[in-house]
Design a protein around this nucleic acid. Sequence first.
DNA 1: CTTTTATAGTAACAAAGGTTACATATTTAC
DNA 2: GTAAATATGTAACCTTTGTTACTATAAAAG
Lengths: 210, 210
Amino acid sequence: MLEELQQHYGYLFEDELLQEINNVGTFKDIPEGFKLIEIGDYIKSMPLLVSGAIKILREDDDGDELILYFIEQGDTCAMTLSCCLGNSKSEIRAIAETDTKLIMVPVSKMEEWLGKYKTWQQFVLQSYHNRMSELLEAIDTIAFLKMDERLFKYLKDKAMVNHSEVIHVTHQEIARDLHTSRVVISRLLKTLEINKKIELHRNNIKVIDL
Amino acid sequence: MLEELQQHYGYLFEDELLQEINNVGTFKDIPEGFKLIEIGDYIKSMPLLVSGAIKILREDDDGDELILYFIEQGDTCAMTLSCCLGNSKSEIRAIAETDTKLIMVPVSKMEEWLGKYKTWQQFVLQSYHNRMSELLEAIDTIAFLKMDERLFKYLKDKAMVNHSEVIHVTHQEIARDLHTSRVVISRLLKTLEINKKIELHRNNIKVIDL
DNA sequence: CTTTTATAGTAACAAAGGTTACATATTTAC
DNA sequence: GTAAATATGTAACCTTTGTTACTATAAAAG
């Protein structure tokens, strides 16, 4: 466990902090599709991502979903951070996009470390900064791109975090993530295929990004 | 100056910190419409809002604008925060929505205080939390609301930060903030007027929110 | 006072996205 | 193997939003 910690976070934290994380943190193996956080949950521990990827979603009152972004190795969920430190409910849903390894750190320690370790403070502030940037990018995507561009970006991002040009997903799932209808997605996917940007198969899509 | 500081930030910070802010901070009076931050600017000092309101905008590569939110008294711009602490360029534009008073605090001090004052650390983290929530609300608005609902929300928000049910704005300006066209806004405004939600006049709109 | 500019109203049309309906193919359950 | 469930393709149509064009009026500039 300590080895993995050093491998993924050694460049960020001093040995003493790594040792502390190792002592109080809990390692978890999460299977693909597992719901890590639900909207409204009170968060009592913060996840540090060791490997894999997590999909962060927003939902409105009618149950309509919208993907915000993926988080990857070396990241933490600043939303969770925000909730922990503010003692407030989660405003987002988190689902394991792939099989994922993470370390859960209790909130109490997080706060203690803020005063104790400069590197931890830097990490927390940097995480906020990264998440803010991702939220702004999400806004750009929703506000400034048309649905066909959003769809292609989604496919590319998904291929990236899955480390594979073939992604396993149905049209219906894509429609839910992008907050539109299945018919719209099928229509646009077909156009993308005609334009040689992707290849369509049942339950999977191959992204051909040139 | 110290009096105003105590009045607006006394409940947050201890006297020692207030005194420090007073010593190193610069008070500024900003007129309505003044551009405080441009996209790409490096930020060397952080604004603490004493009175007034600031409009935060995003822009894409084609120069299309989009309002994110307003910030009000007691807030700071966490984007600025983010840029200061991360030593990166601003990703947003900030325009004074009303005449505004603020205190500019140099970045160097901000970082020093993070280790020195627990209340400052709390304030910084709380600011990040607030801004994150506002960005999520902006996303909800763009993603889940239709243009007529977005427009009405915009008018209500603008009335709120201006402390007046009559807001001084042209259809063209609204169209720019909501990233749509003037004709669309004129059309929807007319419908809102027919439905007794607003009254239209040249250069101003009265919001009748019941 | 006259010209120019800014603001607003509105019609007509185009484009994008959303809905309904139905067909077909593949997989799963029994 | 057969029935049911899931996944995809596609046409037809509707709604929302965006565009172009033209009008009228008020304000500002000369």
